[in-house]
Design a protein around this nucleic acid. Sequence first.
DNA 1: GGCCGCCAAACTGCATGCAATTCAGGCGCT
DNA 2: AGCGCCTGAATTGCATGCAGTTTGGCGGCC
Lengths: 252, 252
Amino acid sequence: MAPRSAGKNAESSDKVGVICRALRRAIIEQALEPGAKLPEDSLGERFGVSRTIARHALGQLAAEGLVELRRNRIAVVATPSWQEARDAFDIRIELERLVVRQLAGKLTKAQIATLNAHVDAEDGARDGTDAVSIRLATEFHILLAHMTNSPILVRYVSEVAYRCCLTLSLYSRPHSSECAINEHRGIIAALVKGDEAKVMSLMHSHLDSVANRALVAPAPQRGRDLLDILAPYADEGESDRVVKMPKVVRVR
Amino acid sequence: MAPRSAGKNAESSDKVGVICRALRRAIIEQALEPGAKLPEDSLGERFGVSRTIARHALGQLAAEGLVELRRNRIAVVATPSWQEARDAFDIRIELERLVVRQLAGKLTKAQIATLNAHVDAEDGARDGTDAVSIRLATEFHILLAHMTNSPILVRYVSEVAYRCCLTLSLYSRPHSSECAINEHRGIIAALVKGDEAKVMSLMHSHLDSVANRALVAPAPQRGRDLLDILAPYADEGESDRVVKMPKVVRVR
DNA sequence: GGCCGCCAAACTGCATGCAATTCAGGCGCT
DNA sequence: AGCGCCTGAATTGCATGCAGTTTGGCGGCC
């Protein structure tokens, strides 16, 4: 029960959990694009449960930020703004630096083997679909988080990583994840060597480069809701938006 | 609409949100101690809604880690282990360093005033109950997070701060929060001055000292569930628990 | 007395039903 | 044709009902 011990968060082994996991996976593999509608009864029917359960699952996913829930409206896969994507990556960098700091030089042989096996799998899937590569790359990071044996850290890293996946599918063009794989190998090596500072900086630059490759521009706004596109123009009241304005870019 | 704008996370204006907020507050003010039972129908009755809604609210709080949900069992207020408490603080430190890093030198006059007013309120409540002091101190940090204008950061800081509150109520003795207030003032001053490094280190040591004051020992286990107390002894299988063992302390 | 099993009450898991709201498209009006 | 209104279908918000599980305590048995 080593890695899998933590996640008893109101979602394991019950039907809600099944739906959550399925949707999460569908979302990060881009089978469900941002903006995709998720009506309760379709979901319920598809998974053979009642709306009540589907609804509950949507609630959980909304709490994780993967789904947007507006009152009396059909739930949709979340469409993070460019700024939110950037924020997510910033948070992710800090969290994952913490992960590798805790892990540096403390991995067991078994854990190292697990990590290597995973990266090999990433390598093997390199000629598969992009979606699978992204999922595997994400799971590498979550795997690392699991090894800290800190349920809270696992939860946050997972959430924010999934969120980043989501933004990747929004703002990124078909990117070659090959280099990412090598970076993963580098991180493992540094972890084994136990060089805390080195591995933290490696993780930092790894994530930063992923973010920069993905979030180069405020994005082509590959047209989802026309309403969304116009949203920035509405921007009611908003009195004290002063913080982090340096790199703000007007959408279109 | 400065601070209160962000949190539309599937919980505002609907009954679920009302219950969530009420319970959250009750929990962090220790009106509900860790381990307290939260039966769905009592909750529903108390808030004038059906079990369905109460259930949904519990689900949200469980996702935040404030409530523990075990299948077919009455929900209870979460009882984080000492290790989880330590982990929560570690994460919190990183997140809040990020907050002040983003905020340093970027606060508006209005925001500074808001912060000062809040600290004054903390000061004013110093002779009130401990619970209120803790809540106000926590809200100071959440207020800061709001000012980053990053909903994701707000969510995570809030969650982890609430969690820390929870652990405070478990493992801490009546602590004087007076010094904390001064530390808050110091942080504001450094933020205004715009000294990024300084304010990050201030925040770090502030949180670290709060954590150390609270989590000096694995805690007197002020007896909730005797089962919980015995849990560490059971510790089934647990093959590869290698990480972060340095500072582990046996319970009792 | 202590221990085990049984039973009713309590509680959760889930589906269904009804009211309220939103959404889509057709109709009439200009 | 363009625009707005209006109506029915789709969909959510929520309560209630029933079945299955846990709980706690009582009585019998050792």
